[in-house]
């Protein structure tokens, strides 16, 4: 009996290593899949919630479950620049272009990543900001350099703006199988599609995975303004100029004192 249990556990481990197909199923969803930006928009908070559904016929695991949720925003190219002193003046002298890094990246976990799975697994599964590949242009080649000072600076600056976040205690288990996590998006995150990738770990192994997504869009007046500015630039400019003329004229009439 003990032998059979050990064999089953080993098999489960093997399967987990081969891919997320095991006795558990992961169900996750968001409170809102469609965030609209209106004139009073100051950022938004979404809640990711889900549950682990056990196959009743399978063996009960002993170790606790762990969740790692990765939220990836739309990709935009960035340039990281470094200043140095030239003739007493600080000038941008070196720069590196990062090709399509995520504009928003949040790694929310139920425990510190090192406690959830091995460093090897983290690298393989690209878990955490440190293991997220950020491709940069180096002499017309695109490569990933992990200890590059430009990459370190990019991650630091993005974290300062709350655009890159890694929180090891953001996911909480309400019951042993039911979890929730708050995703708080600052107001400056770009509009577009956001991917939410949820991974379930047990005993250091990935056992299930679930994908979700949400989008941030402009609505109503905000969308109208963007369309007008982008598609009908000249008309928009003339309208802005008319607005300036009208405002200036009204003010001079209102404030006329003689």
């Amino acid at each position: 009996m003990r032998c059979a249990l050990a064999a089953a556990l080993a098999a489960a481990g093997l399967i987990a290593n081969a891919g997320p197909a095991a006795a558990e199923r992961l169900v996750a969803s968001l409170t809102n899949h469609h965030v609209t930006i209106t004139s009073n928009y100051t950022g938004v908070e979404l809640v990711l919630f889900g549950s682990v559904e056990r196959d009743p016929t399978a063996l009960v695991r002993r170790g606790p479950y762990d969740i790692v949720a990765t939220i990836t925003g739309p990709r935009q190219s960035l340039r990281t620049r470094r200043k140095s002193r030239v003739l007493g003046i600080w000038v941008n002298t070196a720069a590196r272009t990062f090709v399509n890094p995520p504009s928003y990246l949040a790694v929310l976990a139920s425990r510190p990543l090192d406690a959830i799975t091995s460093a090897d697994n983290q690298r393989r599964l690209r878990l955490g900001i440190a293991n997220t590949p950020l491709a940069e242009m180096i002499d017309n080649d695109i490569g990933v350099v992990n200890n590059d000072p430009f990459r370190v600076a990019l991650v630091r600056l993005m974290r300062e703006r709350h655009l890159y976040e890694e929180e090891p205690d953001a996911v909480t288990f309400l019951t042993p199988t039911l979890f929730r996590a708050a995703i708080s998006l600052p107001a400056q995150v770009p509009i577009g599609n956001y991917d939410v990738d949820v991974k379930l770990f047990a005993d250091g192994n990935l056992i299930a995975q679930s994908d979700s997504a949400f989008e941030i869009v402009k609505a109503g007046f905000e969308q109208f303004m963007v369309d007008a500015a982008r598609k009908h630039g000249l008309a928009y400019g003339l309208a802005a100029a008319m607005m300036a003329l009208l405002t200036g004229w009204i003010a001079s009439v209102v404030f006329r004192r003689d």
Partner: peptide, 28 residues
């Protein structure tokens, strides 16, 4: 204004309007 709007699409009319209202009163 017209040139910036037509070439770079960077004129924020809402921002400009708020600045304007403050600006014209202040200028008087």
């Amino acid at each position: 204004t017209v040139l910036h709007a037509a070439t770079n699409h960077l004129v924020d009319a809402v921002l400009a309007l708020i600045l304007m209202v403050g600006g014209v009163i202040g200028a008087q």
